[in-house]
Amino acid sequence: MDITFLLQLFINGLVVGSIYALVATGFVIIYKATGALNLAQGEFLMVGAYLCLNLLSKYQVPFWQAILITFAFAALLGAIIERVILRPLIGSHLISVIMVTLGLSSILKALIQLAYGTDTIPFPEVFPSAPVQIGPIPVSQGYLYAIGCVTVLVALLTSFFKYSKTGIAMRATASSQQVALSMGISVKKMFAISWAIAAIVSAMGGILLGTIRGGIDMSLSHMGLKVLPVVILGGLDSILGAIVGGLIIGILENFSGGYLDPLVGGGAKEVAPYIALILILMFKPYGLFGKKKIERV
């Protein structure tokens, strides 16, 4: 077996996986806080990518500033969507909430098509293109930056949930909304914040995908679907699970693309995550890190 080929696949998997992980984190945050599955996560990602692209190529904003503006906009978008569309649904059936997010995804997709059309738009090169040699294999610098960005963002999120007052209050809300209310926590505010955070991390995922692929189009929204096996694999309510699950699915995808596709004639890359998902759910129905309730003995 060619070791360089293997390593190359591994690194590709790691990069894609880390982006999956990021988007999955957004998914998990909304699920934990509000109990809803946000099926428009992929569209959040797309909106972020297109907005950043616009800032970069049309207004010539420097990359890091463009990211910050995109974040601010994404946060606003998330909070507004929560306020206008999801808050009136508090207390209604879970299925209706999920259906609404599905509708939301169609609307966002249509709006983007309206504004930018369906053609692939080239994404400006923001990271230096010369590859770096890591051991025997050349790795594009964009990949390294992508992994770096994801790591920083995840670290920030983790410390936010662990140490900040709002973060702890959000975890308390996830644990029990009624008790959180009795502590004087504004549960509605916590919902809005979780949507804002989810929109931010998805936007980051979109931007990174744009830089790596070199161009963006409608297919970005499929990421929302891709992330579903990731979160179910990791456990719907576990951020750590989302990260590990994202990396596993990313690597698995690239390995099956590299080794199985030539044997079966293509397509293994797309199916592999879902096969793994079914297998894991058969043995660990809560996912790898999903919470089973604490039982006191």
Partner: peptide, 25 residues
């Protein structure tokens, strides 16, 4: 401030974090 029936601590938060949440306001 109401202490609800059946204790209702946040089970997946630590004791210290539970107290933090109590002082949220």
């Amino acid at each position: 401030f109401q202490v609800m029936e059946g204790r209702r601590v946040f089970e997946d938060l630590t004791i210290d974090e539970n107290l933090d949440v109590g002082g949220h306001t």
